[in-house]
Design a protein around this nucleic acid. Sequence first.
DNA 1: GGTTAGCAGTCGGTATCATCGACTGCCAGC
DNA 2: GCTGGCAGTCGATGATACCGACTGCTAACC
Lengths: 335, 335
Amino acid sequence: MLDDRKASILRAVVQEYIETAQPVGSGRIAAAPGVDVSSATVRNEMAVLESEGYLAQPHTSAGRVPTEKGYRYFVDTIGSPGALRGEHAKRVKEFFARAHGELEEMLESTSRLLSGLTAWTGVVVPPSAADVAIRSVQVVGLAPTVALVVSVLADATVEKHSVELPRAVGDERVNAASAHLAAQLQGTMRGSVPADVARTGDPDTDDVVLQVLDVLRRTSPADVPDEVFVGGASRVASAFDAVETVQQVLSVLEEQLVVVTLLKDVVDRGLQVAIGTETGMEPLADAALVVAPYTVDGERAGSIGVLGPARMNYPEAMAAVAAVSRRLGHALTEG
Amino acid sequence: MLDDRKASILRAVVQEYIETAQPVGSGRIAAAPGVDVSSATVRNEMAVLESEGYLAQPHTSAGRVPTEKGYRYFVDTIGSPGALRGEHAKRVKEFFARAHGELEEMLESTSRLLSGLTAWTGVVVPPSAADVAIRSVQVVGLAPTVALVVSVLADATVEKHSVELPRAVGDERVNAASAHLAAQLQGTMRGSVPADVARTGDPDTDDVVLQVLDVLRRTSPADVPDEVFVGGASRVASAFDAVETVQQVLSVLEEQLVVVTLLKDVVDRGLQVAIGTETGMEPLADAALVVAPYTVDGERAGSIGVLGPARMNYPEAMAAVAAVSRRLGHALTEG
DNA sequence: GGTTAGCAGTCGGTATCATCGACTGCCAGC
DNA sequence: GCTGGCAGTCGATGATACCGACTGCTAACC
């Protein structure tokens, strides 16, 4: 563990570096509030902090820069989560007061809100539909051997899947299957669609029914939704100096599935913040991710996050993510 | 008009610059195939081309760079659309041979295909649903005063809108309204939903019916869909040198509506290519857009495009966009 | 013993300067 | 009208020196 003085020096270095993005020297730290020793003492302490891996020196005659371990210590010793700044709190409040309409739209703008609050990129993973009740199922014929099964779930989401029919069965059979399925599946949990239901008696109709059940079961455990809303991706351009880093981070953001599993992994590990290699993704070595799950009706539904450079303002980002996740949960619970 | 020699010199400059991204000098052009004069003559011609605005000089002792006008001339004088390179043609062919499943998924991967073919960013605007027949309408109650109207259109797309009900009318009324609407609207064009239909006789049910019709009419002329698929946005990072340009272009791509209207505008002006300020968007001053509409069942449905730097390989990009738009139209017509 | 002032030393950043090389424009000769 | 050749321009590159912001270390101080 670090003694008080080392800790406050380390904290001062991190804060200063986050602000200026420049290596910080002992003089600057000695002048910082909360550090009441001379620059010489600071130098001695910084040398120790470096040897212990909290700080690094780009070159001999430069100031110090926090390492991943340094950021980690900083984040771990942020006492209270910290409240959102007044102006930001107001924006969040107003956003959710005004929030309405389609789920997707709302999540999309939530990702923009996160981006706006932090100056980095906002990410929103939609509620997982793992155990939501089915409100309605409908099968619509589109072509002789193609139909579309549309299911409405209790959380107001709509799923659709196309189904290849074994042969041209005719509209009336499709409609019969649709009505039958609607009756049989209403109220069923999406994650527990049965492999078989009561037969209608007509073999052709039953064929359609079975085909649809098969599709629903195969696509069922949507515990990892493949969709994710990314807001403010353009901020990545100003987050990193190296063009290749920008490109790599953008590439990561383009892979929906990767982003979803990334957030899920981090949340599952119980982290609020993943710094650099902690993300487990090589292209994010210079980045950091602040995440929070949100709950709907008391259950973990999805997660949100902010992706920025490792030198991001953690207290602010964590406050923003916490506030938005709480409010988002509420908004979705009511609706 | 430019005489033959000036034209071939200009073309050589553009081609060379596209390849190297470096100002090109007279010596290089004199060595180019198709130009059989000395560098001195080339110099004289280039001076004229510059005074006429086709070329520009970054500084006195540098080579020439094409201006917007220069690129425009180059594009306008590309004779044949040019066939896709063998390897690329194969990729396109295989992609559409394998294409299947949901429309959205397919359009999404089409945008990636475009990006892969050109090394820049691919954009796909989905088919406009302006005059597509309604295959099915269903109203599902979600909460006492909230329902979701889900309509399946003939092009396999699904629309959903939430509806505020005037008061809690009960599930049976909602279901009655749903059945009634399904019967009344099936086969109607999405763009011509009537303001009123035959009444059911039950006032509460009729209220729901009218409310739904209202929502469908208000959201109806979806001739400008607000969704667009962007593939390979990370390529923007390597397309421009200036970080601010990268950021600005990414910002444009984040605004779905802006991108849709941009493509639409360009196509409506009858252009295949919009260079720099021709796009009408200030942040795209250094960019160029290659577009093509695609047709489904013989009618203009949507458009696709490639967004890259002004110094992009136009013949290749135009060939790619043309091939993909044709194939995409076919794929959507069959399905 | 811990702290501090002071000092020597390191090293990147910036400015200066000369050189180099890739251009151009122009002119005289073919 | 084309071309070879030449003088001139100017950015890019590299050497050099200098400055300034650091550091680590040591000796003195409390």
